[in-house]
Design a binder for these strands. Structure first.
Length: 142
DNA sequence: GCCAACGTTGGC
DNA sequence: GCCAACGTTGGC
């Protein structure tokens, strides 16, 4: 990680694709985004950026962190040219998953998009927020 | 171009 | 299961 690294959060319901599925696969392309704002965030991801993996609905917790291994390209699951995917690989599981309640109650995470824009499935995270999340997850990335 | 109707997401 | 938030669609 250098100072050009950006941080993001992606959300998925674990009943559809869980962090455990992701680890088992070793890598994946992040498909199925059908929202312009989320799509724009995918397109802004750079190789090497770090991505928190959040379980929505069931668990409601950040399970780990992934790395962008390929920047945006057309979503192979649709002919619609508007939509893109990125390739992600698991980097590290959180030693302690961080749940939504913890995020909401932390003073430095009051403005995080995860809380402010609860319906968005791909969103940016500031450096400060990322550091707080990593600390709460008792996880370091090196 | 406005806005009502409708659909989806996700927290509770 | 409900509903708030919010994005999309289509009639006018």
């Amino acid at each position: 990680m250098d100072n050009k690294t950006s941080f993001w959060i992606v959300k998925q319901e674990p009943s559809q694709y869980s962090w455990e599925d992701f680890v088992k696969d070793g890598k994946t392309y992040w498909d199925g985004v059908r929202n312009y704002q989320a799509r724009n965030n995918l397109q802004a991801m750079k190789k090497g950026d770090l991505v928190f993996f959040y379980h929505s609905v069931i668990g409601k917790e950040i399970k780990g962190i992934a790395k962008v291994t390929r920047e945006a390209y057309p979503d192979p699951t649709t002919d619609d040219e508007r939509w893109v995917v990125v390739d992600l690989k698991p980097l590290k599981a959180f030693a302690h998953p961080v749940n939504l309640e913890q995020v909401k109650s932390h003073k430095d995470l009051q403005e995080i998009a995860l809380v402010k824009q609860s319906r968005l499935s791909v969103m940016p995270v500031t450096k400060k927020e990322s550091q707080v999340l990593l600390k709460m997850g008792k996880t370091s990335i090196h």
